[in-house]
Design a protein around this nucleic acid. Structure first.
Lengths: 241, 241
DNA sequence: ATTTAATGTGTTGCAAGTACATATTTATTA
DNA sequence: TAATAAATATGTACTTGCAACACATTAAAT
């Protein structure tokens, strides 16, 4: 057995067909969206009897010739039709009995997509956007994964311009504030929020106003192009040494 | 193939002996220690020809009946003889070609140990404490893993009482400050540092003084017992749902 | 024309962070 | 034992970020 960290080539060969390749690896995507002033997550009814009636995250086994991130992008593309999506690895979950069919270690990612995006096409009518706040029980350990990813998202939005992936290109400050409130689960002071955002210097006035709102329309903004938006797919291989 | 996220039992069985169990899973431990005012990490000479002369992290394959954390604790115990160690998962690394012998996905953990601990026994004289600052190249993608874990550690110490795992039970404020400086790679103002620490209310005066120092001795402190120290091994299964 | 509902904007107080200097204590040395 | 060296211990003024808070303005709806 590989005593040293570097698994010896010989050792690898010796164990290839023995017990060690008995672990499957999957990725699970917590796909967040924002609609009707609520943070939502895209879920699917579990097709396992053990979990009948429960929702589960979207995931799949990782192919042996596929990056972890590539697997996640594949799932996103298959399920939503979207390509350029914000994606961030959160953690691995590896409890022995987390999957009833065998040992499956999963790497959790969260991603942020714009529910109103014109290219969004759910591939399956078993897919549903569920309000994050209303989710109680899920299949597998997916509730734990969801909670962990939500916490990470809450941390991220405080310093990094990532929430814009949840919004259409142009948005008002009110929309932005409501989104922060939905993610953080708190109410924010309008004046302080605007001050803080303007200090961050993320936004650019697009010179247009809201339309079709039943009150005084607000200005529309977009993310400054200098803020890479942290959206774009990392180059495959960025992790390769 | 498992189209839905819940890998169907049938699907699992179908693929068990096919391509999907062709991925091995390992854990790698970034074992930090502190000595001679330097942050150090415990490394071993790689035994792979491809990496001859290079150091690598301590890791091993995960056994199919073993938690990820259990595997990490096993490595720590084997290598250092220590049991109750601070351990924290950081990230999975899964590039296709990160391991020359095959597809190996690794889950990185960092841990903090007290180099002066009387129970510390390195199992092998190929093991070395290397100053983190002086490490340039490592085997595999281990330099990337090390850098990622160091960044995480730097974040953690700002808010959580974790550095105490690197120190003996009793320590002076100077020692503590030097440790922070070593981890963060910056110099800190002594008065402001002490103010900040005392605000956090982590410490308890043990009523003793430093001994054998060539200058005025400082008071000794220890971590308040109310601060769980975030040390103790999480119960196995805490992650199980 | 009036009402309604949301936009847009500044100030003050408080808390935390940063910069900075002097008196005190112990060991060491002359 | 007196003088020196080196580190401990401690407080204040300044600046910056955060929190609380109110009123005039605009456009849509009635």
């Amino acid at each position: 057995m590989a005593q040293h960290t570097g698994l010896k080539t010989a050792a690898i060969e010796k164990i290839s067909h023995l017990e060690y390749f008995n672990i499957a690896v999957s990725v699970d995507c917590v796909i967040f969206g924002y609609d009707e002033k609520e943070l939502k997550v895209l879920l699917i009814k579990s097709d396992l009897e053990e979990f009948s009636g429960l929702d589960s995250l979207l995931g799949d086994l990782v192919r042996p010739d596929e990056h972890l991130e590539t697997a996640s992008y594949r799932i996103l593309k298959e399920r939503t039709g979207l390509d350029d999506v914000y994606l961030e690895q959160v953690q691995a979950f590896g409890s022995i009995n987390r999957h009833p069919s065998g040992r499956v270690i999963t790497i959790a990612y969260y991603s942020l997509i714009d529910i109103s995006h014109h290219k969004l096409r759910l591939d399956n009518n078993e897919l549903n956007w569920r309000p994050v706040n209303e989710i109680r029980k899920m299949a597998f350990d997916h509730k734990l994964i969801l909670d962990t990813c939500l916490k990470r998202l809450q941390q991220q939005i405080m310093n990094q311009p990532v929430v814009f992936n949840l919004l259409p290109e142009k948005f008002s400050l009110r929309q932005l504030q409501e989104l922060y409130e939905a993610i953080l689960g708190v109410e924010l002071d309008r004046r302080n929020f605007r001050k803080k955002i303007s200090l961050k210097d993320w936004l650019q006035d697009v010179g247009e106003m809201e339309e079709d709102v039943p009150h005084r329309p607000g200005k529309l903004y977009k993310l400054k192009t200098s803020q890479s938006k942290k959206t774009v797919r990392k180059k495959a291989g960025a992790e390769i040494v």
